[in-house]
Amino acid sequence: MGFSFSPLGDQAIVVEVGSEIKDTAQKDVRTISALLEASPPPWLIETIPAFTTVAVFYDPAKALYGTVKQELEELLRQTSVELTAAARTIEIPVCYGGEFGPDLEFVAEHNGLTPQQVIDIHTGGEYSVYMIGFAPGFPFIGGMSEKIAAPRRDSPRLRIPERTVGIAGMQTGVYPIETPGGWQLIGRTPLRLFRPEEEIPSLLRAGDKIVFTQITKSEYASWKEDGHAEDH
């Protein structure tokens, strides 16, 4: 497979594995990250994997760009290695509509559906996490049906509560922390996606499969109370 390399400033190099968001690119990105984690070179600081790229941050006092590039090229000859770890499947319970999903009606109307049909399509999909980025624990999720696609709001909301599930264009996602944003909000999960106290602070990881399930408001409330959200 052909990779290209280019600098991201004087402390990082970007490995580009392709120019389209595809499963194969995503797999290469995960393999590269895994290889670097398994045998971290002395100059390695950290990596930021994305859809088609892995940014590798390094210490220029230990190795300059040329050396890092050469060592990465050697390391990446091993990418034919198959990832053995099976993808995890994470269930995300969502209480749809009402105060948690004020835009569910809009998404339904926009697509000529009833709110329950939107929920059925949303819970019926097979999703995968392409990357984590933008905000702590925020998943970029692929696989949503175009039948429930909806444009972003004309004017973004100033505050979207944490754990809100939304739709923007062909994407669906969950806000891990309170942020401003223009997504159409369809529900909320009791699960915390950002867990700063844990060793891996993100519930989701690139490569995970996701299943959304519908829960009632009282299930949502008890989920919070009995601490399921803490150790799910």
């Binding site: 990082a12 930021i48 940014a55 941050f57 970029f140």
Partner: peptide, 10 residues
């Protein structure tokens, strides 16, 4: 563009 890493000073 496809989202990718940014850095301090980008």
């Amino acid at each position: 563009l496809i989202s990718e890493a940014v850095a301090f000073g980008s």
